[in-house]
């Protein structure tokens, strides 16, 4: 319907490369659609034709960013493009292009069938409709939950997911994965909509809720997140490429047991060098884990140093694995 609305005869589904297995299901569904005259030429006698093809990534988070996705689809390394021009005017092969998430598109048939007013009965004035919440971490029943926006609170979501899986109290949640401002449990009364989340200094974003119990050390958690962003930085701009590199070095130092209180300030400094200076939002995402664990859980950092929590065999093993363990993306 989206392709029809903009008069396009060609659509690509960009699937991350790790999804070769689910991709087979998708390709089968597309083959079925072709076989049943829902894709191909002259659809249902309208004269309108549409091809949908699947393109697989090959392990690069940044290719979810729309302009990096276009680069990747054109056979290049996935580095974001300068905007403007925006994809709507100069997109794939320099042609006007619409890029949407599959969840967005999945709402369209229901809205077309039942009307906008019907859809708007779900959600709030500013956050209309339903959303998929993907819940992970220390909960009994992790998985996807589809909920109307604005009706339930973070605590409700936690309860729906069966509550804590460890028997220990939940301490905090990341509402949109590693890129989002962490929310301490005192704010779990906030409703799941854009305005309420903004009200508690966070975001709804991708709605990938990672719940953490009170055994989680925020220094360790922040390091995991920085490691992710350092790994996924596309290398195009210096603040993100170098900033995530130095930040990870500092966190590694803390984990190895060699950190000092001065390193905590240094993390704040490195963070400042990244914020607001990046070419695309990924660099900004990377700062969230530092900014907000420092804001809400600074005592974890101080304790980490003062109570000499670093340097345990587990942390050392984790660090050793990191230096050579994964198949790193080459820096450009």
């Amino acid at each position: 319907m989206c392709a029809y609305a903009i008069g396009s005869n060609l659509a690509y589904i960009y699937l991350r490369g790790e999804f070769s297995e689910p991709g087979k299901e998708l390709e089968k569904a597309l083959a079925d659609a072709y076989a049943n005259g829902l894709l191909g030429t002259n659809l249902m006698g309208t004269g309108y034709s549409l091809d949908i093809r699947v393109h697989y990534g090959a392990g690069a988070y940044i290719c979810g960013e729309e302009s990096a996705l276009l680069e990747s689809l054109e056979g290049r390394i996935g580095q974001p493009r300068l905007k403007p021009p925006f994809p709507a005017t100069n997109g794939l092969y320099n042609k006007p292009t619409v890029i949407n998430n599959v969840e967005t598109l999945a709402n369209v048939p229901w809205i077309v069938l039942n009307g906008a007013a019907w859809y708007r009965q779900f959600g709030t004035e500013k956050s209309s409709g339903v959303k998929l919440f993907s819940v992970s971490g220390h909960v009994k029943n992790p998985g996807n939950y589809e909920l109307p926006l604005g009706k339930y609170s973070i605590q409700d979501l936690l309860d729906m997911a069966g509550g804590s899986s460890t028997g220990r109290p939940i301490r905090a949640v990341l509402p949109a994965g590693s890129s989002s401002p962490i929310i301490p449990a005192v704010n779990f009364g906030a409703k799941l909509d854009y305005e309420s989340m903004a009200g508690i200094g966070s975001v709804l974003g991708s709605c990938s809720f990672i719940f953490m119990d009170d055994s989680v050390d925020m220094v360790w958690a922040a390091r995991k997140m920085i490691r992710f962003f350092k790994h996924e930085s596309c290398g195009k701009c210096t603040p993100c490429r170098e900033g995530t590199y130095w930040a990870l070095k500092l966190y590694n130092k803390l984990l190895s047991g060699e950190g000092t209180l001065a390193d905590i300030d240094m993390i704040g400094e490195v963070n400042k060098q990244i914020i607001g200076k990046c070419f695309c939002p990924l660099g900004e995402f990377a700062t969230s884990s530092m900014t907000f664990t420092l804001k809400h859980f600074k005592q974890d950092y101080i304790d980490f140093i003062e109570k000499k929590k670093g340097g345990t065999p587990e942390y050392k093993a984790e660090l050793a694995r990191d230096t050579h363990g994964h198949h790193a993306q080459a820096a450009h």
């Binding site: 392990g59 690069a60 990672i210 995991k224 596309c234 994964h326």
Partner: peptide, 25 residues
Amino acid sequence: FYTMYYEEKVGTTVIDVCDDLPCAL
């Protein structure tokens, strides 16, 4: 650029274990 392309020989079977934050929890 892309992690899923191997620049050097790998084993017949490649086992990728996730140790990112949610799995680590």
